[in-house]
Write a protein that binds this DNA or RNA. Sequence first.
DNA 1: GTCTATACCTGGATAGAC
DNA 2: GTCTATCCAGGTATAGAC
Lengths: 207, 207
Amino acid sequence: MTTKERIVDEALSLFSVNGYKGTSVKRIADAVGIKDSSLYKHFKSKQEILDTIVDTMRQHIEDISCEFGLPADDNIEEAAAVYAAFDEKMLVELSNKIFLFYLNDSFVSRFWRMGTIEQFQNPEVYGVFKKLFLEDSIAYQTTLFAELSRQDIFIQADPQVMAVYFYTPIFFLLNKYASDVEHEEEALEILDKQVREFYRIYRRKGV
Amino acid sequence: MTTKERIVDEALSLFSVNGYKGTSVKRIADAVGIKDSSLYKHFKSKQEILDTIVDTMRQHIEDISCEFGLPADDNIEEAAAVYAAFDEKMLVELSNKIFLFYLNDSFVSRFWRMGTIEQFQNPEVYGVFKKLFLEDSIAYQTTLFAELSRQDIFIQADPQVMAVYFYTPIFFLLNKYASDVEHEEEALEILDKQVREFYRIYRRKGV
DNA sequence: GTCTATACCTGGATAGAC
DNA sequence: GTCTATCCAGGTATAGAC
């Protein structure tokens, strides 16, 4: 890790707890192990560090954006097989995967916290936060459930309503346990109960 | 409104957007229309202003805590009548009432925003925020749905799971539209669809 | 209870030696 | 690229006149 990368990394850690204004350049420099003045050889301002974080997150999102969505369109046979085998276990695994990724991925989880506390202060940060955690997540699940309904694996229901019921407990638990990572187990138990109920409600019964 | 009350009011407005550290005593004093030094005749420190807000919110909660819960226990006949008449319209009204109260009550909505952005900084603030928006809400609805199941108005299901499905869309929409109050209509439409689906799922069919 | 003046500190940022 | 030294703006808080 270069010094520049370490500055970004430590800055994100500090911003995600103390906020942008609540974090001084000196504290970032201390965390890196250099003097604050040295930091200005890597970034021309404190704002530029934040901008770099936002840009990094934007790229990170593109890398992971398809991860929780549908199987790729260009692989239609594999996709069909996945849907045909869709069961309760897969649904539980999907929700756990999303929840734990947002909660534990070192970059995403810190960006979540920073986005939360900077949402009324920094439009750039909030734009990325909103897209990832408030819009795309619902959009992907909407497509997924629409397809599962179309294939008669799930019952006919408004796919967006289903997506909201699938995602909002994850969102709620992320909020509740973001500052309380020790009780992750508790969150996973609640999530498990919600998803099983979701499956009970929406899976197609009989034939 | 006394000067002291106006200081608390303006401070809450500023804290709820700029955060505690992001708000200077001078800006609070400007908003009130006095000099910053005069403010220290009313509060011995900036921290004391925040403490006053938290205490005020704690009292405010007690005043409203029963509002979205069950009818009072000491009024058992009225309560029974309310349950017997429970229908889709009442459920929609309940969710709208909760959502709009949290979004538009001048004190609660500003405290919501402040709690959101101060959650990793100020344990006192977060304690009150967490209790009201993450714990009590679910707890009240759990009791409500438990009773509706017991009386065979709703189907038999885990009342906490029901409460989570009832409340988390409200919570999600509060997050999404807290910074975007103009699109309240949009939020209410989504909420309406969710609640009708909820009623479709959990109301008891036939007799 | 409000003002002016001021003390004292911390924050962001630059200059220039090495 | 790192350091020391420095500048200047802005922050919290106090003293004392009115």
